[in-house]
């Protein structure tokens, strides 16, 4: 049911782990629906994401999308990272089964949540960044609406 790329990222997740004293950290999803993602960012003075780590409780797709999302934002500026959408994550993974699309939304939301935390700590505003929704079901409902 999963593409080879999904299986690769599930079996060999990139950037899995934690960052001590991260510039920003965000957790999204809920245990009720079975997926929780936490994203840690290390961002330098120039606003470039130097390091990124994730931890995920969830299915194969949840783990693979988290892993791919970290790859897509690593080395990018904060503004560039904002452009990493769930569609970009899905494309990079050669697609996801329809019932797993919400995992990619969760990955996008996890990045935003970590960036939101970073902005808050820095006392800055990031253009185009909205306060993240913590509950993924709201995002899914929005998408479907």
């Amino acid at each position: 049911m999963y593409s080879e790329k999904v299986m690769d990222h599930f079996n060999n997740p990139r950037n899995m782990g934690e960052i001590e004293e991260p510039a920003g950290v965000g957790t999204v999803g809920n245990a009720k629906c079975g997926d929780i993602m936490r994203m840690y960012l290390d961002i330098d003075d120039k606003g470039v994401i130097q390091d990124v780590k994730f931890k995920t409780f969830g299915c194969g797709a949840a783990i693979a999308t988290s892993s791919m999302a970290t790859e897509l934002v690593k080395g990018k500026t904060v503004q560039e990272a904002l452009l990493v959408t769930n569609k970009a994550v899905m494309e990079a993974l050669d697609g996801l089964p329809p019932v797993k699309v919400h995992c990619s939304l969760l990955a996008e939301e996890a990045i935003h949540a970590a960036l939101w935390d970073y902005a808050k700590k820095q006392g800055i505003q990031i253009e185009g960044l909205k306060e993240p929704v913590e509950d993924i079901e709201e995002i899914v409902a929005e998408e479907e609406a």
Binding site: E18, M37, F57
Partner: peptide, 8 residues
């Protein structure tokens, strides 16, 4: 578990 934020 090593990957799980809940375990952390």
């Amino acid at each position: 578990r090593s990957m799980s934020p809940l375990y952390e």
